[in-house]
């Protein structure tokens, strides 16, 4: 971003504009990834430690297809398909047999799945970092009110907003969304209304994974790819989910953007402490509002 003026006041305004712009675009990545994690937790009570690797899997699936076709849209579609498929297979094969067990079993098995996915990426693609070029169409910049913004980050904000809105509309306006919101509270009752809750579980696990995978492929042109990229972001994603309130979709949106913006401002004004800001926020929320900003005693809410 180019700073147009040089006064102290202007630097402050520039800092605010830059902090918001970078923070919202990265916050959207956090929201997209955390939305899947909180949805899976809200519906199934499963804390999926492999969720970060689904984000990485999406980035790598997109990377491979982008390498073959050179088309970013194809790369995004590949990420969605790969994320949904891996998530759905995970739910059916290793999560479903453990629903009646204590949560520790699910933690252990998803942690194992995370390690396996990282190793698979290293074996198939290689352990080194990979660059992912910004698509030509999105590689320029846009000038607004004297400020210059990178087109790709603007694209991230718009695409993230559309995807989050689509997920919200799906959950609140569609019959299937109604089934899912009801099943969060009472699976037996939903089953006795004739709906297949197991199918809903598989679908939601796949959908949550697909959202993480989209986030992975969207962030790749900014930061590149590396096998542990999922393990790196998952900590921040857990912070978002805890701050927003476990299982709260609204909480994830607010907390994701809040943490993205807070970290971005931190990098501008207190770079030595920027990494710690999300965790300070989390500690404050845990101390003063343990259920999170929008959590209702751990129950999924809109």
């Amino acid at each position: 971003m180019v700073l147009p003026h040089n006064t102290l006041l202007q630097i402050s305004v520039d800092g605010i504009v830059q902090g918001l712009y970078s923070g919202i675009s990265f916050g959207m990545i956090l929201v997209l990834t955390a939305a899947g994690l909180t949805l899976i937790f809200g519906l199934m009570g499963v804390v999926n430690f492999a969720h970060g690797e689904l984000y990485a899997a999406g980035a790598y699936a997109g990377f491979v297809l982008f390498g073959v076709t050179g088309n970013f849209a194809v790369a995004v579609v590949a990420a969605v398909i790969a994320g949904f498929a891996i998530g759905a297979i995970m739910e059916v094969s290793i999560i479903r047999p453990l629903y009646d067990r204590e949560p520790l079993y699910q933690l252990a098995v998803t942690f194992g799945a995370a390690i396996i996915l990282i190793e698979l990426i290293e074996v198939i693609i290689g352990p080194q970092s990979q660059p992912f070029p910004i698509p030509d169409l999105l590689s320029g910049s846009i000038a607004v009110a004297g400020y210059t913004f990178g087109t790709y980050r603007i694209f991230l904000i718009v695409a993230g907003g559309i995807l989050v809105t689509a997920l919200w509309l799906f959950l609140t306006k569609s019959k299937y969304g109604l089934i899912i919101r009801a099943a969060i509270f009472d699976t037996e009752m939903v089953e006795s209304m004739g709906y297949d809750v197991n199918r809903a579980y598989t679908f939601i696990f796949g959908l949550g994974a697909a959202y993480a995978a989209i986030a992975g492929v969207l962030v790749a042109p900014l930061f590149g790819l590396f096998p542990e990229m999922g393990a790196e972001i998952i900590i921040l994603i857990f912070v978002v989910v805890v701050v927003g309130g476990l299982g709260s979709f609204k909480g994830v949106i607010v907390a994701g953007l809040l943490i993205g913006i807070a970290q971005s401002f931190g990098q501008i004004y207190v770079p030595w402490a920027a990494e710690a800001i999300p965790f300070v926020l989390m500690v404050a929320v845990i101390l003063y509002r343990p259920q999170g900003l929008f959590g209702v005693e751990g129950v999924f809410t809109e």
Binding site: A182, F185, V190
Partner: peptide
């Protein structure tokens, strides 16, 4: 279903 409205409870049924 406590978070669903009366209308949504009925639609689901």
């Amino acid at each position: 279903f406590p978070a669903l409205t009366v209308e949504e409870n009925l639609k689901l049924a």
